[in-house]
């Protein structure tokens, strides 16, 4: 009797989603400090796209503008400067041996950056089309609330919501860690711990059957590593980032000063992350007792270097945890996990 009822709910849910897949175009957007990633489903296919959430202003000249146009580089004119934004920024920053700038910091809109919102708007215009139908759902990621940042989070969320609504979407916000769980722990019925290690911060969610029990964030991410390493090795953070993404292997002993510094600061970040997780679980008042060990899934660009998962696992193993952990795994595609999870949330909300 009981199963009959649940099967009916399951059947209706599948029918509804099939119908939606044919008739609507929900979008999932990961609004990250480092990258903005969008995901949508085209029939059974999943499509994703990303842009670097960064920009670099260069002095205006007709020649520069012509070069940018000829090479299909994204830019806009701002007074006597040309603002190059998106993925091409990194290339130009290296070319000019200059630091690129971020429209966001620590997971939220960067209030100190005058060009922050105009650049984000320009990036989003490249990536997000107008809604094709009324009430098309778009789910975008937001970090977890944390002490002293709630009003900034409210502003951040409302600004993005307003923008997406202006494109005709029914915009909903989803916690970044929970989005990772939606994307990666489907086989566990969305039960486990999702961690998104981004450029500005790390977001953590623990959920049971898709219901979040713990959400928190730490304001340390890839940018912190890049800047800290850049300071000690006297390199631009932009260059550190490039080298980190190209060749860093945390499972091997460091072979130079730069790698040594990267190992040190990665370890620092992981220790803070694991320590925060341990404390959050220990302090949780209403955390239910799990009936099975919980998996941990790691996502985000900062989790991408080879050996990161092992470093995290080693650190986790060094101290007892208040819950049993079944496995630590890396997301199938760490860079798109949050956007894919947001897409699932958008389809659910529709």
């Amino acid at each position: 009797m009981a199963n009959d009822h649940l099967w009916k709910v399951a059947q209706e849910a599948e029918e509804r989603i099939n119908e939606l897949a044919a008739t609507s175009h929900p979008l999932g957007v990961d609004v990250g400090t480092s990258k903005i990633v969008a995901a949508r489903r085209q029939g059974k296919e999943l499509q994703t796209a990303s842009q670097l959430n960064a920009f670099i202003p260069v002095p205006y000249s007709k020649f520069t503008e012509k070069t940018l146009t000829q090479n299909a580089i994204s830019y806009y004119k701002d007074g006597d400067e040309l603002v190059i934004f998106g993925t091409a920024t990194e290339h130009f920053a290296n070319m000019f041996n200059a630091e690129f700038r971020r429209p966001m910091a620590d997971g939220l809109l960067n209030s100190k950056e005058r060009l922050g919102w105009p650049v984000i708007e320009a990036i989003l215009q490249m990536m997000i089309p107008k809604a094709r139908a009324k009430d098309e759902v778009l789910a975008f990621s937001v970090p977890a609330a944390s002490d002293g940042r709630n009003s900034a989070l409210t502003y951040h969320e409302a600004t993005f919501r307003g923008y997406f609504q202006s494109l005709g979407y029914n915009a909903i916000a989803i916690n970044e860690g929970l989005a990772v769980i939606f994307a990666e722990l489907e086989s566990e019925n969305f039960t486990g711990i999702g961690i998104s290690c981004g450029g500005g911060m790390c977001n953590v969610a623990l959920s049971f059957l898709s219901i979040p029990s713990i959400l928190f964030s730490i304001a340390k991410g890839g940018d912190f590593i890049d800047q800290a390493v850049g300071t000690v090795v006297n390199e631009h953070a932009t260059r550190v980032k490039m080298m980190k993404e190209e060749s860093l292997d945390l499972s091997k002993a460091p072979k130079d000063k730069l790698e040594k510094a990267l190992h040190i600061y990665y370890q620092d970040l992981v220790e803070e992350l694991v320590g925060s997780l341990r404390r959050a679980i220990s302090r949780a008042e209403k955390l239910p007792k799990a009936d099975r060990p919980l998996p941990i899934v790691l996502a985000g660009g900062t989790a991408k270097p080879k050996g990161f998962r092992e470093m995290f696992e080693r650190t986790l193993r060094a101290e007892p945890m208040p819950i049993e952990v079944s496995e630590v795994k890396l997301a199938a595609d760490p860079l798109t996990a949050t956007a894919r999870g947001a897409l699932i949330a958008a389809m659910y909300e529709k």
Partner: peptide, 10 residues
């Protein structure tokens, strides 16, 4: 389907 699963659970 993950979205159908999420809808079912919730």
């Amino acid at each position: 389907d993950p979205a159908a699963k999420l809808r079912f659970l919730r």
